[in-house]
Structures are given as C-alpha cells and as structure tokens.
Nucleic acid binder design. Structure first.
Lengths: 211, 211, 211, 211
DNA sequence: TATGAATGAGTATTCATTCAT
DNA sequence: CATGAATGAATACTCATTCAT
C-alpha cells in the first residue's frame, strides 16, 4: 500500500475516533465502535495504532501541533504583543468552534487518565504554553505589558480561561456564535488584564490595601 | 447504629476514595482499593453508596457545595466588588492548595465521564459560576467594572483560568508556594481585566482595528 | 421464649418463605425478602433454620409429611382399593388447590437443585409413593387391579400425572374449578387404567402386535 | 467462518452445557465450566449465546422441537389412536433413555427458574401437549376413546406420568431397562384408562357414590 | 494488508451468613 | 432472643488484543 493511502486510512480512523470519543468519552468508547465508524475491521486498527490509548494520544498530538504551527505562523505576521494575544484567542477558540467534536475530545477526554495526562499531554502542552508565555515576555520587555505577572502564569491562566469557556460551551450545547462572543469578552479581559496602564491615575479605591 | 457514626464512616470512605482517585484516576481505581484504603470490606462501600460513580459524584457535590458556602459567607463581609473577586480567587486556590488530592480529583477526574459531567456536575457547577457572575454584575451596576463583558463569560473565564493554574500546578507537582504566587498573578489579570479604566486615556494602539 | 411461641415464629417464617419462593423461585429469592415478609430481622432467620436450603427442605418435609398422614388416615376409612385411589387423587389435588403457593413451591422449586432433589427429597418422597404402591398391591392381591403393571410404576405415573396437572394449572394461572375438573378426569384415567377388566372380551385390535 | 462450522461449534457448546447442567443443576453450574467442557474460552460462549439463560432455553427448544417433529412423523404412519398413543409413550421415554443427561436437564432443570418456565417453556411445551390432545380428540370422535375426559387433561396427565417416571428413573439412577419396563406399564395404564370399555358391564362398586 | 473469530484477564456488585450489641 | 451492620467470597460478562486465514 502506498504511503499516502496508508496515511489516508490512518486519518480516517482518527476522524472516526474523534466522533466516537466525543459522543461517549474515552473509557466508555469501544475499539469496535471506532472500527465500525471508520469502516474497517477491529484488527485493522492495530495496524495503525499500538493500542486504544495511542489513538487518543495521536488525536491530541496531531491537534495541538497543528494549533501551535498555526499560532507560530500567524503571530509572526503581527508585531504588537496585544494583537498577537488577540490572535491566539481567536485561533484557539476558532479551532474549537470549527471542530466541536475535537474540542470535546481535547477539552474533556484529555483528562480522562491521570497517567495519560501526566505522561503524554504535559510535554506537548508545554509547547503551546511556551508560545503564549513568549509573547507575554516580549510584551513585558517592550513595556506594553505589566511586569508583575509571570508570563508562565499568564499562559496557564489564559489557556485555562479559554478552556473553561470551551467546556461550558460544549456542555451547554450552545450555538457557535455564543463562543464567538465569549471570545471577544475573554480577549478583552486577558489583554486588558496584562496591559500596562497607560497612565496609572491615582486610584482611591485601592487605598484600603489588599486582603 | 447512630447517625453520627454512620456519617463518620461515610466520610472515611470518601476520604479514602479521594486519595485513591487522585493517585490513579477514576476509571483505573478499583472499588476494592477504596475499601482497603478506608479499612472496610468491599461490600460495606455499597451500604453507603449506590455504586462507584456515586462515590465520585458525592466527592464533587460535597466539595463544590462547601466552596460555594464559604464564598457566600466570606464575600458577604466585603463591599468592594474587586476585593470580593480577589477573595474568591484566594478561596478557590486556597482550597485547592490545602487539599491537593481533592484538587486533583475535582480538576481532573471530574471530566472523566461525559455522562457524569453533563448530568451531575453542570447544575452544581452553575451555582458557583452564578456566584461569580453575581459579583461582576454588581460591580458593573456600580460602575467599577466594565460593562462590555458578560458576567457569565467572565465567570467561566475566571473559573477556567484558576482551574488551568490548578491543573498545571497539580501536573507539575509544584510546591504550594508556587500556587500562592500564581494566585497573585491570576487575581491581578482578572481584576484589572474587568476593571473600568479610571481615565480611558486616548489609546493609539487600537487604531489598526482588528484582524 | 416458650416452645409454643418459638414454633409459631418458625411457622411464620415458613409461611413467608412459601410466598416468596412461589413468586420468585428459590434461587432468585433473597433471605432478606423472607425476613421482611415474616417481619423479622435477617439474622433471626438463622435462629430457626440452618441456612436458606434448610428453609426449602423444611417446607417440603412439613408438607409431604402432612399429606402422607392425611392419606393414611383417610384411606384407612375405606376398603375398596379403587375408592382409596380416588381419595388420594382428591387429597393431593385438594391440597394443591387450597395452597396454590405451596403447590408452586413443591411442584416447581422442589426441582431447583439437583443436589437438594437427590439428597433430601427422594427419601421423603418415597413414603408417599409407597403409600400409593401399597394400595395398588392390595388391589392386585384382591383381584380388582390388573397385575401386569408394577405398583411402583403405577405410583410414579400417578404422582407424575397429578403433578403434571398441577404444573399446567399453576403455569396457566387457571381457576381452582379447572383443577377440580381435571381431578375428575385424572382419577377416571388412572383408576380405569389399572382396573382389571370385568370381562376381558376377546379384543382383536391388539393382534397386530406392538410397534 | 463457514455457517456449518459455526453451527457445529454451537452444538458443541450445547452438548457440553447439557453435561454440566445435568451434573450440577442450572444455578450451580458455572459458565466457565461449560466453556471448559466445550473446549472454548469463556468469552466464546457469548459469541453464540446471549447469556447463561439463553443456553438452557436453547437446549430445551432444540429438544422439544425435535421430539415434536418425531412424534408428528411417526404417528402419521399409524391409524389406530391407541397405537398412536403407545408410539408417543415410546418416543418420549425412548428419547429420555437414549439421552439421560438431556432428560435430566429437561425434566429437572427446566423448572429451575419460574420466569424461564412461565415465559419460554410454556409455549413450546404446548405444542407437545396439543399433539397428544389431538390424538385423543380424534379417538373420541371415532368412538374408541371415552368422551368423559378432556383431551387436554389427558395430555397433561400423560405427559406428567411419563415425566414422573423419568424423574424417579433419573433420581434413582436405575438401569435403562427399568425405564423400558416402566414404559410398558405406563402405556397400559394410560391407554386402558382412556379406552372406551368394549362392553360396559354393570358395575356395582360405584353405586356408593363418591366420597 | 485486512479480517473478525477467538481469547481470557479483569471487576463491579450481590447476598448468605455472622456476631457484637 | 433479636437485631441489622458488616463481611468477603464468588461469578457472569465485557472488550482490548491477537493471529490464523
């Protein structure tokens, strides 16, 4: 079989797996369901993947890599760190919106196994977090972002915020437009939250100190 | 058997389950492991819980309710919406920090079953989101928070941001102090992100419009 | 506790067990169901019976003994072997009709365990078969019954015939009168079947030999 | 896999199940015992049967159908109703004698589950009873059988009588010849019992009426 | 390569029985 | 005597994975 055909069949199985995982969850899904959905025999799955876990891992890796590549390419076109962040928000939530099943798998199923999460997801995941943190660090260097927040913390918070919106969107079975509007709001909060105040006007309400 | 003894044994089982679930994940954990960890017979578990799922649900419900109660009580003591949000951040991440196992269970295992997530978690979860959204809406009415972001979106984003920090903290097996410092940063981003600018100085960087 | 009270409670448990076994079958019935139906605690059952099997055995033994006693007493009042058999038919089916639950237990549940059947039921059961066989043997000696059929075979066949009627009656959930009418028919067949022909008129239809 | 191979393996499992059920009884038998006896893996059983109950049901259905088919074919060759009944007796007890295990399963285990008995057995069982009743009704129309006994009652009684003989034969672990001789006796009783008396000589013993 | 029949390890749950109160 | 909470052995059934065809 030609390599390209092989790759095509692999993709067909992955697509089927995304559908099945999204509907039932990783642990409840059966390999035979995926095989049926992909139109292949049960045994064929094992010609393309080591085991059931490997399917989930492959979905995740393919997707996060694609997202990272896209983010790298797109942010390279922009200069302003704030606009770069805005672009990341749009890209992450845009991917989610276009591939709801995939969103469900990545957002929810990803956390189905501690072992899996700790062993496989973390490294890949870090590439994405580093991309965001890099943008923030750059912004801080250039004086547009406040420096009292760790870029890494911002990255985690930003990813979490977008993932939280995704989760409630997926659970709530809301319309795609709602996610688009949520993206607006999230972008505003995150960017304004990290932006250095143009002129830190004397604020009185904070004089009471923090708790 | 006295009611208080019964409740005590129930708690013992739940505590054991939290430990076991945190270490292995819900699906990988065995009921017999929980029984052993709790020092009871396998069958005894079923005198207190309908089934394995019921244990996870009970953990979640107990915890989220306790957190909501705490948040309600504590925010009632404060007036300033910004300081109220700050308090919520501290309470959520403080709970997490004090009960790492629990954090792992709620943050990670919670998403282990789509069915579970959609059926049980959502309603309880909404109570928490509504609390946050309520604080934001109040701040908007009083003019301290910007009105161009939906309180609900902010609540989801805020929960997600804190959950994202929790997740990376748990996965990374970092020290408690790191979570404390992350809480600082997250609070800053979120509160400054939603705060209405004291003097919306003419900003030039947005003139380029959006992409 | 006085012996009479003890006996009373034992009977209460047996009565409850008959109801429960009749409805669900021996293996499907739960000891706790019997306890509840008898209004006692689960553990109390074991103050009166060794185990679950012992309950079924006790039901059977009590009942077959009572039937045997009754048959002995009643047939002693009669002299004609044919009328004695008729009496046995009425007594067996009469017992069944009056205690449908019991019939169901003895007819059906009795066979639920090979071990039980072979070990316990057989001996008790033989007393009943011997009673019938005794009547037949007597009739043969006195020349009213044909001698070409073993009394034992007749006893088994007769018991089986009545048990077969009982089974279909119980399964079919028919009215008591139907069983009464069936008793008529069965008595006729069995008694006329064993009765020596008054005048064995030359029969031609048998000359063809047997198949 | 060829259909014929599949059918062969199914039969192998059924044969093994008959052996196992006969020895231990349905409820006491373990699926793994059947699998081992059939030389297949536990899971393989479930490729051929829905569950344990389904195995018992299949045994019963296969057997009763085969017996009915045989009875239909054989009785069609005869004309005399009495000889037809004789043939049925021989066929039923002949089947039993040739397949003692099967007899044990059908005679004893058949009654192991009320639910099973009422739900599955009854309909199939009726086909057999109807065959016998049909022969009797025909004999009555032709004036060779007495008309004061319902054909249905006779069928139940006849089946019961033969089943009773089978039961005692199986329990008593007697030799096959004993069953053959018992068949003789049972046939005589049943056929003479239903046969219309050639010359109803004035009988005096019945003048006392019934008790 | 592809198949799908066969495998058999693995586990939640039940329930007869016990025994401390 | 009576209770019923606790026990823990015991088992049908599933399903990821393999391998002969």
């Amino acid at each position: 079989m030609r390599l390209v055909d092989r790759a095509k069949k692999r993709q067909r199985i992955l697509k089927a797996a995304v559908r099945v995982f999204a509907r039932h969850g990783f642990y409840v899904s059966r390999v035979s369901q995926i095989a049926q959905a992909a139109g292949v025999a049960d045994g064929t799955i094992y010609l393309y993947f080591r085991n059931k876990d490997d399917i989930l891992i492959s979905i995740f890796e393919d997707r996060i890599d694609a997202l990272c590549d896209l983010v790298e390419k797109e942010t390279a076109k922009l200069d302003d760190p704030a606009r770069r962040l805005r672009r990341v928000v749009d890209l992450q939530l845009g991917t989610v919106r276009k591939h709801r099943d995939l969103a469900e798998v990545v957002s929810i199923n990803l956390r189905q196994s501690n072992r899996f999460l700790k062993q496989y997801a973390a490294p890949k995941f870090n590439r994405y977090l580093d991309l965001i943190a890099g943008i923030v660090a750059d912004g801080q260097r250039r004086g547009v972002f406040r420096s009292d927040v760790s870029p890494r913390v911002f990255a985690c918070a930003m990813f979490g915020a977008l993932d939280g919106l995704t989760l409630t969107w997926v659970i709530g079975k809301s319309a795609p437009e709602r996610l688009a509007r949520a993206a607006e709001g999230a972008a505003t909060i995150l960017i304004e939250g990290i932006r250095k105040r143009p002129a830190p006007a004397p604020r009185r309400e904070r004089k009471g100190g923090r708790t």
